[in-house]
């Protein structure tokens, strides 16, 4: 019964995210101002079901539901939405939803095709309080990077509009380059320390679980590469003013790495992290 309940909640959340994405895309092409609120409301309804899904799975499994790729991917998109709502409340950026909801939807669709069983017996390694800390830090950090990439795409479109001197229909509705650049920077400044802490807690946890800090496991390697990219984004901006187009481009590249580390490594390169 409760398995059915959590499946139902998941499907409902997925459906609402799907509607929000479609509305968002229509909105891009023939927008009216009122749609801005609409997409927010539809996503929020989906989010409520999503939250219920996570709670039911937590109760059922007795642990944070991020122990399979299905759960992790779903939790990842949940984190993106939390940050999206905060960003909307803080900046009220028109059209942001249209760029964020597709990312959420893709993650949820990936999650939906992966095996959904709740892990009955938890890998003993995961029975550690480091597990919660490490994963939560990593997920929130990755969510910030996802939003930074979405905002980066918006920046690149708007930059093209201004630079080409032939503004497209989106010119009026996209926000200013300056605010997009600033939000991109803030998101990376949030994501980077979280990723750093996630790696540090991971290292400590690895030591308590396996007795070694670092084993060049593919996930560790790719996380490190991601970390280096974002370190570079921040460093270049602060030292020689790599802002705007270059920063936006790098933040999109960084997020591609995040996604690869997340799915690619788990699915294609076997390693210690394969339980996630």
């Amino acid at each position: 019964m409760s398995i059915n309940t959590n499946v139902l909640f998941f499907e409902l959340a997925l459906s609402f995210y799907f509607i929000a994405t479609v509305v968002g895309i229509i909105w891009l092409f023939r927008g009216k101002k009122a749609t801005s609120k609409l997409i927010f409301v539809i996503a929020a309804i989906g989010f409520i079901f999503h939250t219920l899904n996570i709670i039911v799975r937590y109760i059922e499994g007795g642990h944070i539901p991020i122990t399979s790729l299905h759960e992790a991917s779903s939790f990842f998109s949940w984190c993106i939405l939390v940050l999206f709502f905060i960003l909307e409340a803080r900046y009220r950026i028109d059209l942001l939803g249209a760029f964020i909801m597709p990312i959420v939807l893709i993650l949820m669709l990936s999650s939906s095709v992966l095996p959904r069983e709740i892990n009955p017996s938890l890998n003993p390694v995961l029975k550690s309080y480091w597990f919660g800390i490490h994963t939560t830090l990593a997920f929130i950090g990755d969510a910030a990077f996802a939003l930074a990439a979405g905002v980066g795409v918006m920046y690149l479109i708007q930059e093209r509009n201004v630079k080409s001197k032939h503004p497209s229909a989106l010119f009026q509705r996209l926000p200013s380059l300056q605010i997009l650049d600033e939000i991109n920077y803030r998101l990376i400044s949030l994501g980077f320390p979280l990723l750093t802490l996630a790696i540090i807690t991971g290292v400590i946890w690895a030591n308590t679980a396996w007795g070694t800090y670092w084993r060049w496991d593919p996930k560790e390697v790719w996380s490190l590469i991601t970390w280096i990219i974002y370190a570079l984004v921040l460093h270049l901006r602060l030292s020689i003013g790599w802002r705007g187009k270059k920063a936006a481009g790098l933040s999109i590249l960084g997020f591609i790495l995040v996604i690869f580390t997340f799915f690619g490594v788990t699915l294609f390169l076997k390693g210690l992290h394969t339980f996630v």
Partner: peptide
């Protein structure tokens, strides 16, 4: 005003300049 974009974009050179400035700077 709300259902069409009739008043949306600048139709004089000086307003177009202001509008562009607002899309570069917040």
């Amino acid at each position: 005003r709300t259902e069409t974009k009739i008043g949306e974009s600048a139709v004089s050179i000086s307003f177009a300049a202001v509008e562009l400035a607002k899309k570069i700077f917040e």
